[in-house]
Design a protein around this nucleic acid. Structure first.
Lengths: 315, 315
DNA sequence: GCTTTGAATGATATCGATAACATCTATTAA
DNA sequence: TTAATAGATGTTATCGATATCATTCAAAGC
């Protein structure tokens, strides 16, 4: 008991004992068993984090911010990958709850009804970060995919483009993509541009996905004058293919990206993009989570961290 | 007790009881407490994984392979980031051991003496994956950074280059970078090329790092005819800067990369690179780990998964 | 008919730390 | 001098699952 105290609340133990304990720990190589500790104290120092994919380096910044911040407070982050599957997500959430995590962060905002029910009942903070959803399970910290896509479409319109194509990843399993497409469509509506089915594409992820989408769009009889690549590295793939074909950006075709990857600023010409608060999302999520866990109140339910349009030479 | 059995070994429980238990679980929303389970059974289903950085998408593939494979076997992966600091690594390893992980995977091969000692005594499998180190703590699954860098340098020599520059990230905190540099130097030696201090550079990570290194090398009175970028996205940064300056690859300068990032195959011209068995490392590590944990023997200590040189137009 | 066997289920102690309460000692107040 | 108080340490029960041993009961074998 005294050892337990010496480790968790050193001031409640005398200087002398503390030293003896320190020596003994050194000598025996004692490492506390936190499973037992957590079981006994009924709360763990582990936070569960589920992302759709780790390959996508975009999440890395958010993850890093979360892990850094929680780490400072003595928490650990259990990261898992759902692979964009709601069933896998369900399995993972259950596994996390089994591990008695004291908080869960999900990038997804679409969930199975079962998970919604379970998480609502679970007495731990749950944060969703992928989109500014209207009905969060508990807390949502994000930007609005809908508004961001809409804003970029308006921006392209202001720059003079009238046939704006929209390229996304598969919307079937990705609610964020659906939101972005809705934002794009809403903007067209507001601008009295009529939507052209041929200009709305889905493509596999990766550079090849972006390249293929570009090729398909260039093959159209009525080519677009601007292409809004709303996911992952699609814009990079498209831009590099333009380079290969000696198309001039933005004269022959304009390209804009949803995410501001480093490389967009290094290409020639540099690519217009949305800057999303990836890091801020991580920081804010971590601090809200801590507030909740440590019962410091904190009744925030929805936090909109906004976005910026970064105009560059490609549009 | 019967419930516990029904969940872990259903065949030892009668059809009837099993069904009643299933109903009860459904009705009450019971979620087993795996902390208690692990404490009692004295082994956990969690594996600890420490990587230097998550931002570097290179690790993503290895991580994914590990998590996928261990996930299938019912294990979970606790991922943490050391930020290239040995002290942080030490803290993380201790935290993992406290969590009673049943295995640890480290990307680093350089460790504090304390960690080496603790991990050697710890009665769990420890896998190192970053380099084919000579004295693994327990198991090492990797390719040889030394041999890979040496092979690429030889390859450049065979292609006719004689002033080969070597660009890496900071070697101070990164043992893999040191190994690569040693490999490069060993090749020079074997080739009777004399080493030129001006051609050996360290640069910060990221595209700008690569760009800056290129600029510094081009500013030399005696320019290199080939540049071997041995880390992260340095080669991409360098290649893009060449593009901006209208330098022809490989006529004006050749560029080779240590890692085969997707984008290297999409640039014009495409960049020569080493293909490293990132995914295979993950797969192999996971299966060795499982073998060890499940006591299926498996005495492998060092596994060299090799590498390939992919010759493209940039050299 | 009685023992044997095995499948199914139950009872108990335990994993290692901690919450809650108890005890002890030295110091201060009355 | 005695009671009160606070600081330090010790005791006990507990968290929830599981290893282990015990029990029950029905079918099978002699």
């Amino acid at each position: 008991m005294t050892v337990s105290r010496a480790l968790r609340a050193p001031d409640t133990v005398s200087e002398d004992t503390r030293e003896r304990i320190r020596d003994a720990i050194e000598k025996t190589g004692y490492i506390p068993n936190r499973l037992a500790g957590n079981l006994s104290s009924r709360h763990s120092d582990v936070i569960g984090l589920i992302v759709p994919s780790l390959r996508n380096s975009l999440f890395a910044e958010t993850i890093q911010a979360i892990a850094d911040n929680l780490g400072k407070a003595g928490f650990h982050v259990l990261i898992a990958e759902s692979g964009h599957s709601l069933e896998v997500e369900e399995t993972l959430v259950l596994a996390f709850l089994s591990q008695q995590v004291s908080g869960i962060i999900l990038h997804n905002t679409a969930h199975t009804p079962r998970i919604r029910a379970i998480l609502t009942k679970a007495d731990i903070p749950v944060i969703e970060t992928g989109d500014l959803t209207r009905d969060p399970i508990d807390i949502v910290v994000s930007y609005s995919n809908f508004e961001a896509a809409k804003a970029m479409t308006h921006h392209l319109h202001r720059r003079g483009y009238r046939r704006i194509a929209f390229v996304s990843l598969a919307t079937e399993t990705n609610d964020r993509m659906r939101q972005r497409r809705s934002g794009y469509l809403a903007a067209l509506e507001e601008l009295d541009l009529k939507q052209d089915r041929q200009l709305i594409l889905e493509t596999p992820e990766g550079l090849s996905g972006g390249r293929d989408a570009l090729v398909r769009l260039l093959d159209l009889k009525k080519r677009p004058d601007a292409i809004f690549c709303a996911g992952d590295v699609l814009a990079v793939g498209a831009a590099l293919e333009c380079q290969r074909r000696n198309l001039r950006l933005p004269e022959d075709v304009a390209i804009a990206s949803f995410d501001d990857l480093d490389i967009l600023d290094h290409l020639v010409p540099r690519i217009t993009a949305l800057r999303l608060p990836r890091r801020e999302i991580g920081l804010f999520s971590a601090s809200i989570l801590l507030q909740r866990i440590l019962k410091l109140g904190g009744g925030v339910i929805a936090k909109d961290l906004g976005f910026d349009i970064i105009q560059r030479e490609s549009t």
